[in-house]
């Protein structure tokens, strides 16, 4: 039986189709500027980490995190910078660090934890580190934080 018709994208013939861009407010910043921001933040995080200021480093990287289309490189830089912070934090310090983050930052951190876990081969981070952070973050911010990660269309 011919089943090729099942693969036809019927949405393209629907005038009322809901587009990705209508699901959330786009980032007002220009992609080039987002990339520039991400690089600057990467440098700022390095300085903060040199002073072993983990909270400062995390808040910096999680604030105004890049989302939406056309900013893939900025997203990658941000993820890698974030993973460096997560890797260098002692597990005993994690709860205190998470508690001092704002609700917005906690939600964004959860998004990155899931992004990290979704990376093929887990990127350059071990799963146990991400799971350790995930456990502590869920303890503090609750399951609501996970629900927001799943719901939010502003993908990081």
């Amino acid at each position: 039986m011919d089943t090729a018709f099942r693969k036809i994208d019927i949405d393209q013939y629907d005038e009322d189709v809901l587009h990705e861009s209508e699901l959330y407010d786009a980032d007002p910043r220009d992609p080039a500027q987002v990339l520039e921001d991400a690089k600057q933040r990467q440098a700022a995080v390095r300085t903060a980490l040199a002073r072993s200021d983990v909270v400062g480093a995390l808040s910096t990287i999680l604030e105004n995190a890049p989302y939406g289309p056309n900013v893939d490189q900025a997203k990658e830089i941000t993820l890698h910078t974030l993973l460096t912070i997560l890797n260098t934090t002692k597990s005993t310090e994690i709860p205190a660090v998470i508690k001092s983050l704002s609700q917005d930052s906690q939600d964004t951190l959860m998004k990155y934890l899931y992004k990290g876990m979704a990376m093929p081969g887990w990127g350059d981070i071990s799963g146990s580190v991400l799971l350790g952070w995930h456990e502590k973050l869920t303890e503090i911010a609750g399951t609501g934080c996970i629900v927001r990660t799943m719901t939010d269309r502003r993908l990081v």
């Binding site: 609700q103 939600d107 911010a141 609750g142 399951t143 609501g144 629900v147 927001r148 719901t151 939010d152």
Partner: peptide, 24 residues
């Protein structure tokens, strides 16, 4: 809404978004 939050809207004033730590 399904992002585990309650929103209270004052049409001429502020909009409050209360995020809850449990399910929606």
């Amino acid at each position: 809404s399904h992002d585990s939050s309650v929103n209270i809207v004052y049409p001429t004033g502020p909009v409050f978004n209360i995020r809850i730590s449990s399910l929606p």
